[in-house]
Amino acid sequence: MPNQDAMTREDEGLRLRGARRADRAATIVLGALVAIVCALVAALVFYVLSRGGAKLFDLSFLTGRPQQFKAGGGIGPELFNSFYLLFLTLLISLPLSMGAAIFLTQYAPAGPVTTAVKTAIETLSSLPSIVVGLFGMLVFVLFFGWGFSIISGALALTIFNVPILVRVMQQALEAVPQGRRDSSLALGLTRWETTIHVLIPSAIPAIVTGVVLSAGRVFGEAATLIYTAGQSAPALDFTNVDLTSPTCPWNVFRPAETLAVHIWKINSEGVVPDLAVVSAGSAAVLVACVLVFNILARVLGRALERKVTAA
């Protein structure tokens, strides 16, 4: 400043010192905030795992039958139902979302069609899961008359899962360098061949990571299921292979309460005498499974990445 007097120079000095002090204070405050958040999350997970931790290795709990009015119930059928539902859901939703993702990234003509598909997926991804569950009840349970059943639950979970998977796959496919795609097309391969032989192999690490992460979310989902897969778990007989029998584990038309639904149900009904123990144990099993999915997603993704880049 050409006509800067002593007053403003002093003011400038103060401002500078204030700015520096604010900078340092902000760094400290934000650091403390992040530390607190990390500590809270760690405490939360530790709390869940430690409270029910003993049950994680208790075979009679993991395989036992649930009890409604007595203490000492297990979660055997629920655990099986959770995995079976997850498997069926992935079986249906993987091809569907792969198709939609390939359409969106490779074929979609710019224009109203693509916009419609994108809007639909966006809408689906922000729908409350309870609304998805109610829609599932309306269509699969009542309209198709499948009742509270595994198939109804798996289809409802598919609706819940598809937008997540489509987004993951779309991002993975878009991340493949354009040059790789162009060079394949330049060799005279069709778009479909390029997709199958070039794009998907390059994108597979990211896709696997995303799919396994989404599996964790499906595994813990309950709101979608309470009115589709039902809230009761009939005893399962693993020697029964009659697919129409309600005790056959593989029968897709039997009702199937999952682990997450079980936690919700026993807590809202509150009649099981050892409610606290069972729900703590179930929660620990649930969280442990989800953590395993998370770690698996990372490890698998990294291993595949290494294989793809080295090959």
Binding site: V41, L213, G220, A260, V261, N267, L286, V290, F293, N294
Partner: peptide, 12 residues
């Protein structure tokens, strides 16, 4: 990890 925790567990 926090995002992965199921909502019923949060409820619990």
């Amino acid at each position: 990890m926090l995002a992965g925790i199921p909502s019923v567990v949060f409820g619990l």
